[in-house]
Design a protein around this nucleic acid. Structure first.
Length: 427
RNA sequence: GUGGCUAUGGUGUAAUGGUAGCACAACACCCUGUGGAGGUGUUUGUACGGGUUCAAAUCCCGUUAGUCACCCCA
């Protein structure tokens, strides 16, 4: 192989034709579900001010500390390739005065995001997410709607064994109390924690709950639970969420260990993961929660909100695992074959007429042998082949060959479209 | 960011320090008036850079990438 060898840079990947069907399917299903629930689409720029994420996601989170793609521009701006969607959308909400729209504002998005992580299967530095945000509503029913729409998209994609995990991490009033209780407990049991958790205890104690280390989980067995520390408002909120969930056919469980890594969350947090035969396969496909204080963090007013995001590449991996069927490019039912230079010249305009009539037509103009062209038509599975030879070109006729019965008739060129439509109707 | 494993044509694989081979795919011709076949050919490779050796795909080091477990998260 020659010297200049280019390849995708770390963590980036090409989406090849064979995978496009998955991406299209996901976008199609997401769009349909979101449209039904009255979400409107929004696209925000890929580049944002670094501070947007530092302020919202949190300075001490891994996303900000080590996973941001930071760019220095010719000016002194510090820009980042967006690591997540919610902060951008809240920024847009404030910037464009969506506060004066009827509330809540329901938005959805789809696009690429970037995190500087070590790549692994289902985890890339550039990956796609889609998500929803319901901004301007405190009612717990929108929390459940958020869960429901994300669940519905995954379910409609044919994914099996989905499980929703929910929890409440309280609000600014009660979370500090819980945090204090938890830290106290952790200090007493310090020796039972892994070294990572001893660090976490100081910086972000709630994250200790998440640790997968078995020793830590044993230590946590009798740790105080966030639900016991919720203030009355938060308790009521969680109770309502669970009651609405009970009315749905969505499988869920309350998981007191569930916390989320981003600073802006409050009250309801949830994740949707895939499980196989009850076993947790570890794949978190979607996650989200309520973020009532995000607006204020970004300099806006008090605007309650709730949202969720799902990872496209992970969903695709899961679809492949489940062998979910997606339709690949449609077979051209009609195939056009030509013989001879005159016929070849007339081919393109005839093909255009068919295209304008909305008929998908396959061809192999690069091959002149009729045998080769029919061979390709066969391989594609086309039902009808239109054959234009020297003779037909001179008489303004064309042969219509039925590939299943091997019978063919000669028709006038001007009648092609009518003829083809008739044939397609018969199927 | 830490640790383990891996890397041979487009794809899947063989070659246990001694001739880089096979299958599929692709392309061409047989074949400019009729079907998925067949025949005959052709193209394409040891990820990159060093080292050991008479000799390296094979052993060693580095790099890159992939992958797995952490970390974290979608």
């Amino acid at each position: 192989m020659s010297k200049p060898k280019f390849q995708t840079v770390t963590g980036m990947h090409d989406i090849l034709p064979q995978d496009q069907a998955y991406y299209e399917k996901i976008q199609e299903v997401a769009k349909k579900v979101f449209a039904f629930y009255d979400f409107e689409k929004i696209d925000t720029p890929i580049l944002e001010d670094a501070n947007l994420f530092i302020k919202s996601v949190g300075e001490n989170t891994d996303i900000v500390e080590k996973e941001m793609f930071t760019l220095k521009t010719k000016g002194k701006d510090s820009l980042v390739l967006r690591p997540e969607g919610t902060a951008s959308i809240m920024r847009a909400y404030i910037e464009h005065g969506f506060l004066s729209l009827p509330q809540p504002v329901r938005l959805w998005y789809y696009g690429p995001f970037f995190r500087y992580e070590k790549p692994q299967a289902g985890r890339y530095r550039q990956f796609n997410q889609f998500g929803v945000e319901i901004i301007g509503e405190t009612d717990p029913i929108v929390d459940v709607q958020t869960i429901l729409v994300m669940y519905s998209v995954l379910n409609d994609l044919g994914l099996k064994g989905l499980m929703v995990k929910v929890n409440s991490i309280g609000d600014d009033n009660c979370r500090p109390l819980y945090r204090k209780a938890l830290v106290k407990y952790l200090r007493e049991k310090k020796t039972g924690l892994c070294s990572d958790c001893q660090k976490r205890m100081k910086v972000n104690p709630l994250r200790v709950l998440d640790c997968k280390n078995e020793k830590c989980q044993e230590t946590l067995a009798s740790a105080p639970q966030s639900v016991d520390y919720l203030c009355d408002d938060c308790k009521k909120h969680l109770k309502d969420v669970l009651e609405y969930l009970d009315e749905l056919k969505v499988p869920y469980c309350l998981d007191s260990r569930l916390v989320r890594g981003l600073d802006y969350y409050s009250r309801t947090v949830f994740e949707i993961e895939s499980t196989k035969a009850g076993e947790n396969t570890g794949g978190v496909l979607a996650g989200g929660g309520r973020y009532d204080s995000l607006s204020k963090m970004l300099g806006g007013g008090e605007t309650p909100a709730c949202g969720a995001a799902a990872g496209v590449e992970r969903i695709i991996a899961e679809m492949k695992e489940n062998k979910a069927r997606v339709s690949f490019s449609s077979v051209p039912e009609i195939f056009f074959a030509q013989i001879g230079p005159l016929a070849k010249k007339k081919s393109l305009p005839i093909l255009e007429d068919l295209r304008k009539a909305g008929i998908k037509v396959g061809e192999a103009f690069g091959k002149d042998a009729l045998k080769a062209q029919l061979g390709k038509a066969s391989r594609l599975g086309s039902k009808v082949v239109l054959i234009l030879g020297q003779r037909e070109a001179l008489n303004n006729m064309i042969l219509v060959r039925n590939m299943q019965t091997a019978k063919q008739v000669e028709v006038k060129q001007e009648d092609i479209i009518k003829e083809v439509k008739n044939i397609l109707k018969e199927k």
